[in-house]
Design a protein around this nucleic acid. Structure first.
Lengths: 105, 105
DNA sequence: TGAGTATATGTCGGATGTGACATACGTGGC
DNA sequence: GCCACGTATGTCACATCCGACATATACTCA
């Protein structure tokens, strides 16, 4: 988390225990990151299972090879939207998605 | 989908049956929309279950009441990232998030 | 060796999402 | 009536994400 953001956070009047809420926020952020990483792994696994190159998937996604590489690398510039779209474009089955979640817990 | 996008889509040389791939893309987009709506419903349900107002949730999210309203209204300007962050900020368990995601199919 | 293929990484202009604010609508006390 | 509260909607400047491109690395096969 950026320092500037933390500052704003503290500035905005807390109602309940600030530390607890702050920690809760961090936890939520960590959960989101973990979720993204799990889905990203599913993207790569699904793509390879279907014998698709990053270029192939990019074409289905209407994106570029470089962006697919960034998706699979867990690049911070990639949104959850794009990850899920990539997963769907790769033709992920429900089982693939479930598997991604099992990895989390 | 925007007309300009469709045009580009057709322009870019298709390798396999264009209609099939095009339909596949639409399906993926529809699935994403459905997923968002499912998560959005979960946000509202979780928030209300915890007795939080939109303003309360906005504070936890470090966003604004208006954006929380847009999230719950399924506004097109809201990303999947924000929806999931809202869900986590509302205090949804990881299982709740998983449940919504598995609904993709 | 060199060509072909797959993947990774950096950059950039333009597209899209964001928080914040104003404001409107409804409801429930008082 | 008025006020407080919760929610909805529109706008806008600014931040973030995007596709596209260039380029680098690595591996394979002839």
């Amino acid at each position: 988390m950026k320092p500037t953001k933390m500052k704003r956070l503290r500035a905005a009047g807390w109602k309940t225990g600030s530390t607890a809420e702050f920690l809760g926020l961090s936890e939520a952020e960590a959960a989101l990151v973990e979720l993204k990483l799990a889905l990203v792994a599913a993207v790569r696994a699904t793509r390879q299972k279907r014998g698709l190159s990053q270029t192939d998937l990019a074409q289905r996604l209407r994106s570029s090879q470089s962006r697919v590489a960034k998706i699979e690398a867990g690049d911070a510039s990639v949104s959850l939207d794009l990850i899920v779209r990539a997963l769907l474009a790769a033709g992920a089955s429900r089982k693939d998605v479930e598997k991604a979640f099992v990895a989390i817990e």
